[in-house]
Computed example of a mutant assay.
Amino acid sequence: MHRFCFDPAQKTGNQVLLDEEESKHLLKVLRLELGAPVIAFDGAGHEYTAVVQAVANRMVQLGDLTPTGEMREAPVAVTLIQGVAKGEKMDWIVQKATELGVARIVPVWTERTVVRLDAARSAERAERWQKIAREATKQSRRTVVPTIDRPCAWAEALARWPSSQPLLVPWEDCRGTGLGRLLRSWSPAPAALALAIGPEGGLTAAEVAQAEALGARAVTLGPRILRTETAALAGLAAIMMELGDWR
Rank of each mutant, 00 (worst) to 15 (best):
residue 6 F to C: 13
residue 16 V to G: 00
residue 16 V to H: 02
residue 18 L to E: 02
residue 18 L to A: 03
residue 18 L to G: 02
residue 26 L to K: 01
residue 30 L to H: 04
residue 31 R to N: 03
residue 33 E to A: 05
residue 38 V to A: 13
residue 39 I to K: 09
residue 42 D to N: 15
residue 47 E to Q: 03
residue 52 V to P: 02
residue 52 V to D: 03
residue 52 V to Q: 04
residue 55 V to R: 11
residue 56 A to W: 06
residue 63 G to N: 13
residue 66 T to H: 12
residue 69 G to P: 09
residue 72 R to F: 07
residue 74 A to C: 13
residue 75 P to S: 10
residue 78 V to M: 03
residue 80 L to H: 01
residue 84 V to K: 04
residue 84 V to Y: 04
residue 84 V to R: 07
residue 86 K to E: 09
residue 86 K to V: 04
residue 87 G to I: 03
residue 96 K to R: 12
residue 96 K to G: 03
residue 98 T to M: 11
residue 98 T to H: 11
residue 101 G to R: 07
residue 102 V to S: 01
residue 108 V to A: 09
residue 108 V to T: 12
residue 109 W to H: 10
residue 112 R to H: 13
residue 114 V to C: 12
residue 122 S to V: 02
residue 125 R to W: 08
residue 125 R to Y: 06
residue 132 I to M: 13
residue 132 I to Y: 11
residue 135 E to G: 11
residue 135 E to M: 04
residue 137 T to R: 10
residue 138 K to H: 00
residue 139 Q to S: 11
residue 140 S to D: 08
residue 140 S to G: 09
residue 148 I to W: 08
residue 160 R to H: 14
residue 162 P to A: 07
residue 163 S to R: 15
residue 166 P to D: 01
residue 169 V to Q: 04
residue 174 C to D: 14
residue 178 G to A: 04
residue 183 L to I: 11
residue 186 W to G: 02
residue 189 A to W: 02
residue 190 P to N: 03
residue 198 G to S: 08
residue 201 G to D: 06
residue 203 L to I: 12
residue 204 T to A: 10
residue 205 A to Q: 15
residue 205 A to S: 14
residue 206 A to G: 08
residue 206 A to R: 14
residue 208 V to T: 02
residue 209 A to H: 07
residue 210 Q to K: 04
residue 211 A to C: 01
residue 211 A to M: 01
residue 216 A to G: 07
residue 216 A to C: 09
residue 216 A to S: 08
residue 224 R to Q: 09
residue 225 I to Y: 08
residue 226 L to A: 00
residue 230 T to V: 04
residue 231 A to I: 03
residue 232 A to V: 08
residue 233 L to H: 03
residue 238 A to E: 10
residue 240 M to H: 12
residue 244 G to Y: 09
residue 247 R to V: 04
